[in-house]
Design a protein around this nucleic acid. Structure first.
Lengths: 113, 113
DNA sequence: CCATTATTTGGCTAAATCGCCAATAGTTGG
DNA sequence: CCAACTATTGGCGATTTAGCCAAATAATGG
């Protein structure tokens, strides 16, 4: 089942998250919606760059957008992705079994996939 | 804090996971260690391809390897990453708030980053 | 040690990604 | 409708990634 469609789809979502700027944007959106121009100002990069990053996140369903007047506001459609970071950071700190909430949860349910 | 080192490191880990073959390998390793040749046989791709994918996972600390005789065995060093899949699948199914264990957990702790 | 098996590494080309610039499109206010 | 503001899209060069092949490295058994 190596070329299972499921793995391809999961990879799409992880790939969409796997960029520093996009992770930064997700982090900000965890505290509430924000419009494109706010990201541009805070990041100091080109408008088109931010817009494309947001399009990547939108394409896989992590964020959704809403136009209000001239501005387009983005918010998290899948806020659970923020929970990833706990586990990612656990990997970074090499706390790979004890302190990661995900690990604990997994051991409880013993559900592997 | 757009160019924060933390975001760069998190992105490295997610990027390492963001490939169908590597996700498939992590899934297999969740059930126990496996040697390179087992992956090669099951995946039907080149030995060097599998080896390089495993190197990517090893580089960021998701797996570790151990040579035993002629073979090199890999096992999960950060088994918590398997927990990601629950959440990724929740995004895929658009069950973005209610059924994702991560979301529930997050709402409980109210810890966002 | 020599042949065999198991794995990694280097090299190559094709494809994808990134970030900028320029051009285009949607919205609002005069 | 035109000018201004906000955002998206297209396109370009530079960098990265993927997967194959061939060559190099590691371990074992004659």
């Amino acid at each position: 089942m190596k070329d299972d469609e499921t793995y391809r789809q999961r990879a799409e979502i992880l790939k969409a998250l796997a960029h520093p700027t996009r992770l930064w944007m997700v982090d900000r959106l965890a505290q509430g919606e924000e419009c494109v121009c706010q990201f541009v100002e805070a990041a100091g990069v080109d408008f088109s760059t931010i817009s494309k990053h947001l399009a990547v996140l939108k394409r896989v369903g992590i964020v959704e957008d809403e136009r209000r007047g001239k501005q387009v506001f983005y918010r998290l459609q899948a806020p659970c992705v923020v929970g990833f970071f706990h586990c990612v950071d656990a990997v970074l700190r090499e706390e790979t079994t004890s302190e990661c909430a995900l690990c604990q949860q997994r051991e409880e349910t013993n559900e592997l996939a």
